[in-house]
Structure formats: structure tokens, C-alpha cells
Write a protein that binds this DNA or RNA. Structure first.
Lengths: 62, 62
DNA sequence: CAGAAATGTAAAGTACCCTTTACTTAATCC
DNA sequence: GGATTAAGTAAAGGGTACTTTACATTTCTG
């Protein structure tokens, strides 16, 4: 599954560490999702969408 | 995380087995998600939303 | 250039998603 | 009532999501 997390984060000027803190996950998790190593859980996907003020469908593409 | 999967499925008149087949997962997975035992993975959430012609946010509530 | 901040890689451990199999308990229908 | 279909429960196993720790590399900044 593809995603624009890295671009969205960059647009906000946030470091991976800052985003990880906002999402309440480890920095490793942010890295893994940005690099497409794996997809976030559904609850985390909701949290990500909420953090960026977008819908899940706007951030992730199956 | 809460969801209306059972109601949506009933509205379509589909059995758990039929829905499982449409989603390409086991019937156990359908049962577990309907009963809230756990949340689907993000890819499966997309598949569920697609199957019902809805958005993920319309089916699942954090 | 030196130091700091940001990003990336790796590995081991835990918990959760999903599977298969098997059995039990409704609900539906001749 | 007996048979069939649907729904529910349980348990073991594999793969994935996420953690922590540690170290290497790149990028920014003074």
C-alpha cells in the first residue's frame, strides 16, 4: 500500500521524531510506514489522518 | 474501535461466509471484526469499505 | 570544518491480525 | 422433528505491526 506520509510531514516541517511523538508511536514506526516497510494498523491510520486533518483515503492508497 | 459491519452486512442480506468470500478472508476474520475482537488491517479496511461502497470513516469509528 | 540534528539500518522481543481446523449452538425450512 | 444453513467459540500457528536499543549515515548550522 502506498502513502504520502513523508511529503505530508515535510509540508508541515515536522521531523520524524516530532511526528512520532504526535502519533504516540516510536520513530521506527514512522520510518517503517514512510518507507513502505509495512502499513499502519487501522487505529494508527486514523490517528495519522487526524493529525494531518485529512481522511485515511487521502493519505493511503491500496 | 467500533464498527457497523454486522448491520451493513445484514442490510445486504449477506451471510458471514459470503462476505468472507468477497473480502478474500476467512469467516473467522469476519466474525472477529464484527464482534470487535480486533480491528482489521488497513488493507482489509479498504477492501471492506470498497465492498460496501463506503469510506473507511463511514464504517469504523476510532 | 566541527558539532548537532535528522534520517536510516539492524536485530530481538511482544502483541496482534489472520489462518485452518474442529466443534457447538442457533435459526430456517421442508 | 430432522436436515440444512448460519452464527459462534476455541486453540494452535504464521506473519506483521510496533517496541526498544544501538549504531551509521546524511544534512543542517555555526
Amino acid at each position: 500500500m502506498n502513502n504520502h506520509l513523508k511529503d505530508l510531514r515535510a509540508a508541515k516541517g515536522w521531523s520524524q521524531a516530532i511526528l512520532a511523538e504526535k502519533l504516540d508511536v516510536s520513530r521506527q514506526t514512522v520510518i517503517a510506514i514512510e518507507k513502505g516497510k509495512y502499513d499502519p494498523s487501522l487505529p494508527l491510520a486514523f490517528k495519522i489522518a487526524g493529525t494531518f486533518g485529512l481522511r485515511i483515503e487521502d493519505i493511503f492508497e491500496p
